[in-house]
Design a protein around this nucleic acid. Structure first.
Lengths: 138, 138
DNA sequence: CTACATGCAAATGCTTTGCAACCTA
DNA sequence: TAGGTTGCAAAGCATTTGCATGTAG
């Protein structure tokens, strides 16, 4: 949580960011570790975790607050929602605009000082949908 | 995940449910364990986890899919949203009606078969709000 | 009776951290 | 050169699981 203020752009930091930028998916820390490892075999998982945290704090990437067990990372720092497959945990962007007025609806109705909100859809991706209903009479 | 079909109402199961029903908050498994332990000192944490899972599958309670590290449990099985304090992790119900039309907006726009959605607000509870801005000139 | 449950302890899996060596600005 | 950073390994923590014993129906 406590981090130095003066951040360096180390080789590791740069490669982690580069690899994440290539992704359309929303990889987990370990998946990013596997990708980075192809270019830097000696990098450690701990370094990946530390750098993802730093990059998120720098605002260069977004740490997704999703309901699954693993944390996931997104190079797209714009506000947007996600949809997660309940079966295989695949995460896509949800094609829906941000609900900007939502937080106003809560204003005055709660004792909390509202900071933000997060919306997540759950569903079945095409692959798992097929698997779940193999004898589905269309 | 795989569970027997014929569920029994054991002493442990009953006490866990009773204690959860008393709560206005949304306790974690360990918090429930602590509460139940006062009445059944020899109950194990594993039993609490197993029973919370069973009770959720029976539809008697709700397992919250929130973004925090811990899973939380709610006796209110009706669809509703929550607001979480980013500072102390306190979770309250969000005073806002379910957005039933939301999933329709996605229909046809995604390759996913939509199952549901979850909306979570983040904010500061009154206590943490005070702590965060002690010299706030109102 | 017997299939389901429990208590206990060990195992799991993701994430964090202490530390000495190593770089980057 | 100083302070941030790394690799490695160990620790942390929530949650799950194997197994022998106990119990509800």
């Amino acid at each position: 949580m406590l981090q130095p203020k003066n951040k360096r752009m180390t080789r590791q930091r740069k490669v982690i960011l580069e690899e994440l930028l290539k992704q359309n998916a929303h990889p987990s820390a370990d998946e990013i570790y596997q990708m980075v490892r192809r270019r830097m075999p000696r990098i450690s998982l701990g370094t990946v975790y530390r750098n993802l945290e730093v990059l998120a704090n720098m605002g260069k990437i977004q740490k997704l607050e999703l309901s699954g067990a693993l944390k996931r990372y997104d190079w797209d720092t714009n506000k947007h929602y996600h949809i997660r497959c309940v079966c295989c945990d695949r995460v896509d962007d949800a094609p829906i605009a941000p609900l900007n007025q939502l937080e106003n609806d809560l204003y005055g109705a709660t004792v909390f000082e509202i900071i933000g909100h997060n919306l997540e859809f759950t569903g079945l991706c095409p692959e798992c949908s097929k698997k779940a209903a193999p004898n589905h009479a269309e």
